[in-house]
Design a protein around this nucleic acid. Structure first.
Ligand SMILES: [Mn+2]
Ligand SMILES: [Mn+2]
Ligand SMILES: [Mn+2]
Ligand SMILES: [Mn+2]
Lengths: 221, 221
DNA sequence: AATAAAGTTTAGGTAAATCTAAATAAAAGG
DNA sequence: CCTTTTATTTAGATTTACCTAAACTTTATT
């Protein structure tokens, strides 16, 4: 496996994320948005990553990871999520604090360290946001076939993941008492703005916007 | 405290190390040697660090850290040594494996994470090589007034630190059964090459070169 | 199909951190 | 004190990862 720069790793990870979110071929603009950079910079990097055979890329046709690119992505994601577990489980950070730190820790490349960290943490299967952790071979549990709350049909639900890791969202969820494993009763869905009124045990009912509900992944219970 | 690049942090740390080793003013060449770079690059960086008021520097006169530079150095060293403790105590690495990993982990700057890591480790006072760990305020236990084995007068000694962190030396010490806390009996000192014959409990006596003995810090027992 | 709008690439630059080779200053030796 | 050696700095390039502005493609809209 080639040696990637930090910038290259961040690109690979973002391409993986956008592909996973359903983009057939990842567009220059989408990637620029995800990485908070300019489209021209993305084009530059695309040429380099193509040269290194980590992506397939033709002018104006968008980007897709090659098999090798996917392998690299999964290895970065593994490190990212394991460090998030460490920060939450061992250093007692809360889930909204760990993403940015893991964004840096993920770039320390050592298979031995990564595997020992995993073992030390008891080989966790999901990270603090409910996302699955790839194993040492790059196999990831479930490809996340999760229902967002705004599309769930059932009345009684359990929170299994959040898809947005912004401090803003996670702090909002903290304030409302919503975390992984929280059980939710849907009281009412309002069609005009797709807001949802819901209730959590021992708490008054409250309403959340579609913006929020589409980032909460749930399963029926 | 200003935001330093990884390169700047590595320079600051090396300047601190060379000052600590006794260099009145750190020379361009010494620093280039320590950082495995070229003197011309050091001159470039010296200008930048002077601009940022982290060092005192006049052309041809060598380099010294300012108070602010020292504070920055101690903060980097704190992170470095805490991560080394983590790797050895929690991930079960051996002392020759951790320096290079810590060289990268040290650049993740988060006071909160650093302090939590310290707490998680039980606020250790020394790292796996016997070096003191600065506290959150940048105070470092003892300024290392340690005797190297080749200058020790006493016959019975205890190993308290190693001053060279190269894998080569540390693996040699592993092979000989020398680690922190090991008790040594000096059997003979040979003047012609300053080699030392010594003995460790339950092991045949053996001889080490001055190259080795000057990197083993000891105290009498 | 023609045109407008949106998306993407190219051209040309900048800043950081490096390098080599040449110039210059300091130190050492006689 | 003069000269040689050693140390240091400058000048000029290179690489990586960005950027803006202009040119070019693709796509959507009349
Ligand atoms: Mn990252
Ligand atoms: Mn996560
Ligand atoms: Mn370092
Ligand atoms: Mn150490």
């Amino acid at each position: 496996m080639m040696n990637l720069s930090i910038a290259e790793e961040n690109y690979i990870k973002s391409i993986y994320k956008l592909e996973e979110e359903g983009q057939e071929a990842v567009s220059t603009n989408a990637l620029a948005g995800e990485l908070d950079t300019k489209p021209a910079s993305v084009t530059d990097m695309a040429k380099k990553l193509k040269e290194k055979k980590l992506i397939e890329y033709e002018k104006y046709q968008g980007i897709n990871l090659t098999a090798e690119g996917k392998k690299a992505a999964l290895s970065i994601i593994r490190r990212h999520r394991l460090w998030e577990c460490f920060l939450v489980d061992k250093l007692l950070f809360s889930w909204e604090e760990v993403h940015e730190l893991a964004e840096e820790l993920e770039h320390v490349r050592s298979e031995k360290m990564t595997n020992r960290l995993s073992e030390f943490l008891g080989n966790p299967q999901i990270d603090p946001h409910g996302d699955p952790i790839p194993d040492a071979q790059g196999k990831m549990g479930k490809p996340r076939a999760q229902t967002p709350l705004h599309k769930a049909k059932s009345k009684r639900l359990e929170v299994v993941a959040v898809s947005d890791k912004s401090t803003a969202l996670l702090e909002f969820l903290n304030a409302k008492g919503i975390r992984l494993g929280t059980q939710i009763d849907v009281i009412e869905r309002y069609e005009f703005d797709n807001s949802i009124e819901l209730k959590i045990r021992n708490q008054p009912a409250f309403t959340i916007s579609e913006q929020v509900s589409k980032n909460i992944m749930v399963k029926p219970i």
